[in-house]
């Protein structure tokens, strides 16, 4: 048997297996079990969910490796963990722990105000956030094997998730409809690597799996993002900051599968208890928004 691994395909491949699923933020092994039992396709291990990072302030960093290992040992599904933007040593540490995906995340305090991690250098795959097509193309150029539209994490307000998904998907529709001679200038305008932009134009979608994130709190939010055309969902504070996490988690998983069936969506939306309280993004000062982090 000759080993002939196309590393980027293997990295992208795991994200393809997560499609149509919900990746949930968890802060303890117990929460990880609840998420797995509710049907999560993966968990994001972190010390504080974004709503608490917001409330606590201060510098948010990679989580304690011991806490991450506890979660890896607790579940059979893939485990992701977050590194700060540009903090390639946090990424090296997470890789050595054996996490299945690293999220180079704007939810943590950036470690570099100019540069992201060069992700092709790692064997572990990375997911990164984006607000528009140019940002997605740059992250893929650096080696991200999965994208997520950023939304505004820790708010429970879906408005930014919708805006970023519509922007990325709308940019792709525009890219496809423009004559080919306009693509290079478009690449210049949005700061995108030309070859990856051409590949995107050819495919009519991002060349890697694209999930939505940042503010999804209800089954209806989940189905809204799926109907807009993303491949799956990250739900952070929305589950474990709600009144009945197990029930809400299971309902969001079902909504992600049956996103086109309003009867089922109505059914799974019943009696879920309190949703997370939430912060209205339109009244939030710009400097408190996390989505602007990333270059």
């Amino acid at each position: 048997m000759e080993e002939q691994t196309d590393l980027f395909r293997v990295k992208k491949g795991l994200a393809q297996m997560l499609k149509g699923g919900v990746i949930m933020d968890v802060v303890t092994p117990e929460q990880a079990k609840i998420a797995e039992d509710a049907g999560a396709c993966a968990v994001m291990a972190l010390e504080r969910v974004p709503a608490d990072i917001r409330a606590d302030g201060g510098v948010a960093r990679m989580s304690d490796p011991d806490m991450i290992m506890g979660i890896i040992d607790a579940v059979s599904i893939p485990v992701m963990a977050k590194a700060r933007i540009g903090h390639f040593v946090e990424a090296q540490i997470l890789e050595s722990l054996g996490v299945d995906y690293i999220d180079e995340s704007e939810v943590l305090t950036p470690a570099d105000n100019d540069f992201h991690i060069y992700k092709h250098d790692f064997k572990v795959p990375f997911v990164c956030g984006c607000r528009n097509l140019g940002e997605a193309m740059r992250r893929i150029g650096e080696g991200a094997a999965m994208m997520r539209t950023k939304g505004e994490a820790g708010t429970g307000d879906v408005v930014e998730a919708v805006y970023h998904a519509r922007t990325v998907l709308g940019d792709i529709r525009r890219l496809q409809s423009m004559p080919i001679e306009e693509v290079m200038t478009f690449a210049k305008e949005i700061g995108a690597p030309f070859e990856i932009l051409m590949e995107t134009r050819e495919l009519g979608r991002l060349p890697v799996v694209n999930f939505a994130a940042g503010g999804i709190a209800t089954p209806a939010d989940a189905a809204l993002m799926m109907q807009l055309g993303v491949d799956g969902l990250f739900v952070g504070s929305g589950i474990f900051k709600s009144g009945d996490p197990a029930k809400r988690a299971a309902a969001i998983v079902k909504a992600c599968t049956h996103y086109n069936d309003p009867g089922i969506l109505a059914d799974v939306s019943k009696n879920l208890g309190e949703a997370m309280v939430g912060i209205n993004v339109s009244t939030m000062p710009d400097e408190e928004k996390l989505a602007g982090r990333g270059w």
């Binding site: 048997m1 080993e3 691994t5 491949g13 059979s76 054996g98 299945d100 795959p125």
Partner: peptide, 16 residues
């Protein structure tokens, strides 16, 4: 046996 080869870091391709 699930995840028999290990975690994502052990994912691979091969000619069969």
């Amino acid at each position: 046996e699930r995840n028999a080869f290990g975690r994502q870091l052990d994912s691979f391709e091969a000619g069969l």
